[in-house]
């Protein structure tokens, strides 16, 4: 029973990892950029939601929705202003640019919202529900629920909509997609917007647990990277599976020694990568010489 309980809590944390990892992998897959600023984009979006909730006084879901719209515009704007001029730059330059973005977004958030830890309200409050001896807290239920809805909507979009097809085409082969009349630039901006939405969702769901300050996404972001690598950085289902698996495994390890959670996560990356260098579901593109 304790085991089942731990697995449920692990799935709740894991679904946040999965959301954050999904955003990372989506952006990587279509635009070939590992976005180190993803966590800060999430943080900024969460602060926007926080302002809408406390200063403007909107209801939770209203603030949530507006913050997601903001995150989408923010993400697309970053792609347009910083990443597009770097389209032909080498891998390492783009990585440095996203590290620069990290510094800028983090610093500006500090200017606007200060440096104190703030409590972040949660949408659902109420007594935990007990089913068959397993306790479901409202926060856990909400994390799993919202993550599932978003991921499912995302799956539908990616699989069946014309936009999804275009995104997959750009991810597969940008030049070919362009020749087929896909507006690749616009698709890339849209991808970044979607990545921003996924990140902000993860942020808003995390904030009630960790409380809010400008560095609150740091830990989650490293976990999202781990989840992404675990699942294979090129696979969207991989990111989800990686996130959930990491959440559950980490919770089980934490039961034994909570300080070993992060070293464990790292050990897991190394182990998986040594056995399968491309992660669980990823594929490695072989370079032609």
């Amino acid at each position: 029973m304790i085991l089942a309980q731990q697995i449920i809590s692990g799935l709740a944390t894991g679904s946040l990892y999965a959301l954050a990892a999904l955003g990372l992998v989506l952006i990587f897959k279509t635009s070939d950029v590992v976005n180190f600023a993803q966590g800060e984009m999430a943080m900024f979006g969460t602060f926007v939601a926080f302002t809408l909730l406390t200063s403007v006084g909107l209801p939770f879901w209203g603030a949530f929705l507006l913050a997601l719209i903001f995150a989408a515009i923010f993400g697309a704007g970053i792609e347009r202003i910083v990443l597009r001029p770097l389209a032909k730059a080498p891998l390492i330059s783009v990585m440095i640019a996203t590290l620069g973005l990290f510094q800028i977004i983090n610093g500006v958030a500090g200017w606007i919202w200060g440096y104190e830890l703030q409590p972040f309200p949660t949408a659902l409050s109420g007594a935990p529900i007990t089913v068959a001896g397993i306790v479901f807290t409202m926060q856990n239920l909400m994390n799993i629920g919202v993550a599932m809805v978003i991921m499912f909507g995302f799956f539908l979009l990616f699989k069946f909509s014309i936009l999804g097809v275009a995104m997959r085409a750009v991810a597969e082969n940008r030049t070919a997609a362009k020749l087929m009349g896909v507006p690749t630039d616009r698709i890339l901006a849209l991808t970044w917007g979607l990545g921003g939405i996924l990140a902000a969702t993860a942020g808003i769901l995390t904030a009630p647990v960790t409380n809010l300050d400008i560095n609150f996404m740091a830990t989650l972001q490293i976990k999202a990277f781990t989840a992404g690598v675990l699942g294979g950085f090129t696979s969207l289902p991989g990111a989800v599976i990686g996130g959930l698996a990491l959440g559950v495994l980490e919770n089980l390890v934490g039961q034994w020694n909570s300080q070993l959670q992060t070293p464990f996560a790292f050990g897991l990356i190394v182990l998986v990568l040594v056995i399968r260098p491309a992660g669980l579901l990823g594929t490695i593109q072989k370079k032609k010489v």
Partner: peptide, 22 residues
């Protein structure tokens, strides 16, 4: 040895986080 580019970056990031904790 088996990693390159992004994968290596992320693995070393994890290493950097894990060592201080250990």
């Amino acid at each position: 040895l088996r990693l390159s580019g992004h994968y290596l970056a992320i693995a070393t990031l994890g290493f950097g986080v894990a060592v201080p904790q250990v």
